[in-house]
């Protein structure tokens, strides 16, 4: 297979997913800060929720990472 195209595909896969995940985590963190500023007494609970959300959002980026690693090492 064409090595250049594979490299391009692997790069694109992780780039788009990382952009989306970054946007998602940014939105979640921003809202969490807003909520904490409004109700500082709920800071602990909000932090737990934020971490849970970040884990799930980050998972999408990790899937893309696995796909791009597969592209690089399995389809070379």
């Amino acid at each position: 297979m064409d090595t250049g195209l594979i490299a391009l595909g692997a790069g694109l896969a992780i780039a788009i997913a990382a952009g989306g995940a970054g946007l998602g985590i940014g939105l979640a963190a921003g809202k969490a800060f807003e909520a904490t500023a409004r109700q500082p007494e709920l800071a602990g609970r909000i932090q737990t929720l934020l971490f849970t959300a970040i884990v799930f959002i980050e998972a999408t980026a990790i899937y893309a990472l696995v796909v791009s690693l597969l592209l690089i090492f399995a389809f070379r």
């Binding site: 998972a59 990790i62 899937y63 990472l65 696995v66 690693l69």
Partner: peptide
Amino acid sequence: ISLSLRLFGNVFGAFI
């Protein structure tokens, strides 16, 4: 699938 891919992807990525 999600649990295993998260663990594998994170550690493998960091390792590489």
